[in-house]
Design a protein around this nucleic acid. Structure first.
Lengths: 216, 216
DNA sequence: GTCGATAAAGTAACGTCGTTACGTAACCGC
DNA sequence: GCGGTTACGTAACGACGTTACTTTATCGAC
């Protein structure tokens, strides 16, 4: 009376193939059959390992949030908290552009294989804000920002960043004001809107730009 | 040698049923077969009238942009250009919330029946900005804003608004800082970020709120 | 008013999709 | 090694978008 066990290698292979399939083929080519063919198994494996295509996608989304959180956490706190906020903005956009298809699934933009975000999934987006909330609070303490609740301000910055990335991925931001220009202008507006003055913002922006990780 | 002509009534019936189907059932229930059943015809009618499901959706998207443009154009220019900008923000959000499913299709969030936005479709989003660009330019002339190019600033406001509406429709903005609170806070930040001072922004915000159309 | 050409609209099929009942065979505890 | 449990493969089902093929409605020429 001892059952056969699930093969963890197959679970990982499915996840990796799914991530690759989504990144390379997009949501259109993301089908159960193609996924099974890619790992050399049958479509039923998706059900024994994940209980359905939507749960597999849910796992991908959770991993995406974890990676975003990790990427944001690599931004170290410095003496210039506004530069930290800007650096977090750079990190957010860089991570999104590195995984555009997954980003659109994570934020409800793209429906993927009947996958619909549950309330619990959306909450994963919230702890990602922690580093940003912290940086905003420090900028407040340093007298650069003049805001009430750092959480509210951080959330609004996130909203604006998401708007930019979302429209950039959708191809809506074109010449003469492409995504790069809009992004820089938006960062400036966000800092000034939070209470910083123009000169200090420009200095912090230059400082944050120097910190940017060289790889895109 | 005289052919049979297309029935315009059927074309309109398809469009209206498609809009209703999308609004009521969402993208999941939006299928060729259900659409045909709703208007009491067969699925081939979609092909003779539109050449495919994607072109029908494209027509819906174009109508959505036209309606958004019209809605934005109803915001009249007043002596308080900042209040006009805020009123345009209200109008944008109100229109989006009135047609949430269509909004997500218009801005590339939701893939609908194999429909993919073409470059030309995305350009429809640009002339929608015209009233906003005008209001920003007037706020600049009134000394309320201190911005370079009104188009760039208007575009950034649009980006932030889209981020808010997008996350609101996705259900990401919840207590304690729900969509309403974030929206107000974001409007303030945008005005201040564009050069206005806090007191003047609050006055314009109150003025714009009074102008809001009573219906949601 | 009748007829014929032309195309709109209906029928039915094809291939693909997600999902699932069923059969098989691999695994672990004894 | 044996037996029970279950992962996995096979094959099917219903629904999807799309399309050859058929039918039928329509309008101009006479």
């Amino acid at each position: 009376m001892s059952p056969r066990r699930i093969d963890p290698n197959l679970t990982n292979a499915l996840l990796e193939a799914a991530a690759r399939l989504l990144a390379e083929e997009g949501a259109a080519g993301f089908t159960t059959r193609r996924l099974a063919a890619a790992v050399g198994t049958s479509t039923t494996a998706v059900y024994t390992h994940f209980g359905g295509m939507d749960n597999l996608v849910r796992t991908l989304v959770h991993k995406g949030f974890a990676r975003l959180h990790q990427r944001m956490s690599t931004v170290r706190a410095t003496a210039d908290a506004v530069a930290d906020v800007i650096a977090l903005g750079y990190a957010y956009r860089a991570n999104s552009l590195a995984h555009p298809q997954l980003y659109q699934v994570m934020f409800g933009s793209t429906a993927l294989g009947g996958f619909a975000l549950a309330d619990g999934d959306r909450q994963h987006g919230r702890y990602t804000l922690e580093p940003l909330v912290d940086a905003v609070a420090r900028a407040n303490a340093q007298g650069r920002f003049r805001v009430g609740d750092p959480l509210l301000v951080a959330q609004n910055m996130w909203i604006a960043l998401h708007g930019l990335v979302s429209l950039e991925l959708g191809g809506y931001l074109i010449a003469p004001y492409g995504a790069d220009i809009c992004f820089e202008a938006q960062l400036r507006s966000l800092m000034v809107g939070a209470g910083d003055d123009h000169e200090a913002t420009d200095a912090s922006l230059a400082r944050a730009r120097r910190r940017r990780s060289p790889r895109v």
